[in-house]
Design a binder for these strands. Structure first.
Length: 415
DNA sequence: TCTGGGGTCCTAGGACCC
DNA sequence: TCTGGGGTCCTAGGACCC
């Protein structure tokens, strides 16, 4: 029998923070009061990353600014994010899943799929196993999850959204009409902030409305996306639960700068700090990249990007930086810059790097050895132990963006 | 006391080649 | 000295996810 589970940690960042503080002897359970995990408004990234259920009751939403949240409830408790903690909790949870089946797909830090098809003989009926997993996570790890149980990933995912916290919900095909069709269409996976309003304009308001709409009409107006959401509305989806590791497609780091940048030299410094982390992650993964792109967000929140294929795939910090500067110069319209990003894609195996004719192999080898040496020092001591002199006496941090923890889950918007 | 950072995939238009 | 279509590569931008 087909049995797919989707496990979703309830208010993940907030629950994990609350649990960690209880373990450290704090008396107050943050899950029981209006509280949020949020960035720092002083650094201009003060948005809500997670909220407690009591905070939700005041209308506080993930993604809105701290200011907006305070206007809804002025005694809100605000906690900074702690990504290391989240990684640990996520890992512990996934270890439990793997006791039941090797087919575990980590969809994000707080969501996983499990394929428990045809395994009743091992641990019992799917519904019983789902309850067992949910209860074990609560008892052994101290946080709660919602588990959706069905015959495919889409329905399992939609199911896990139906009840929280600490719940197991089935959403089998014969339950779609009763449990899923009455929901507003924007609750459907893959109907986001652009498609939702478009559908309402077409008089499609519920998932049921969408399911009963002519699919050829949807294809005409929304292209392949229209066909996909129509299939989802009807519970049709057959992708596999991808166990193990998956090929990574690209690596990028970006950052909001605490002040608006108007000087090219300041932008260069930020780009260098981003190239450092992107380069480290490339090298740590054994990749080179054939495509380099930069992104610029202006103080007016206008975003644009510029990219270029490179003739020799690279993972050298300095080479990435040369390209990033060049791309920035070509793209920048001299507006005040709020946010900068560097991303590489079209990754290749670093082992097979082929120099183009006429390339300076001497210089190449020196650059490679320098990167390797710095990576080793940063690994052995602390990533802040070596930094470029150009960052001295500036307000820019020498490294910016995550440095790719071994275990960082693949993010993907595809099932 | 203003709006994050990490991803994936799709589409459209222009260049270029046959 | 006119008409053209198909295929692929490259780039920019947009949509979605957590």
């Amino acid at each position: 029998m087909k049995a797919i589970f989707h496990i979703d940690v309830n208010s993940a960042y907030l629950s994990w923070e609350a649990m960690d503080r209880l373990k450290r002897g704090e008396r107050l359970d943050l899950r029981k009061v209006p509280s949020v995990v949020a960035g720092d408004p002083k650094k201009r990234n003060g948005i809500i990353l997670a909220k407690s259920i009591p905070a939700k009751k005041y209308g506080i939403k993930t993604g809105e600014s701290l200011m907006e949240a305070f206007q809804k409830y002025n005694k809100l408790i605000v906690l900074p994010p702690n990504y290391g903690l989240y990684m640990g909790c996520s890992h512990a949870m996934n270890e439990i899943f793997k006791e039941y089946t090797p087919l575990v797909q980590r969809y994000s830090v707080d969501e996983s799929f499990m394929d428990y098809s045809d395994m009743e003989h091992l641990f019992g009926e799917p519904l019983k196993v789902a309850h067992e997993i949910k209860d074990r996570i609560r008892e052994e790890l101290g946080f709660t999850v919602s588990i959706g149980v069905s015959t495919n990933k889409l329905l399992a995912k939609m199911g896990s959204d139906l009840k929280k916290p600490d719940a197991v919900v089935t959403l089998y095909p014969d339950e779609i009409e009763r449990k899923m069709w009455p929901l507003p269409v924007e609750d459907l996976f893959m109907v986001g902030r652009r498609t939702g309003p478009k559908l309402h304009n077409m008089n499609i308001h519920t998932i049921g409305d969408l399911a009963k709409t002519d699919v050829e009409f949807l294809e005409r107006v929304l292209k392949s996306h229209g066909v996909m959401i129509w299939r989802y509305a009807n519970g049709i989806e057959d992708s596999k639960v991808l166990g193990g590791r998956r090929e990574i497609k690209g690596i990028g780091n970006s950052t909001t700068i605490p002040y608006d940048v108007t000087e090219k030299e300041d932008a260069y410094l930020v780009l260098l700090s981003l190239c450092e982390t992107v380069g480290m992650r490339l090298r740590a993964g054994g990749y080179t990249a054939r495509l380099v792109s930069i992104g610029i967000k202006t103080s007016q929140f206008f975003y644009y990007s510029h990219q270029r294929k490179v003739d020799t795939p690279t993972n050298h910090t300095n080479t990435l930086y040369e390209y990033a500067k060049e791309l920035f110069d070509e793209a920048w319209q001299k507006e005040a810059v709020r946010h900068l990003g560097v991303r590489v894609s079209e990754l290749e195996d670093a082992g097979v790097t082929q120099l183009t004719l006429f390339e300076d192999t001497e210089k190449y080898e020196r650059g490679k050895r320098l990167d390797e040496t710095i990576d080793r020092l940063r690994m052995k001591y602390h990533h802040t132990c070596v930094f470029r002199g150009s960052f001295a006496n500036t307000k820019i941090k020498p490294l910016q963006g995550g440095v790719g923890e071994e275990d960082y889950p693949m993010m993907s918007s595809l099932l």
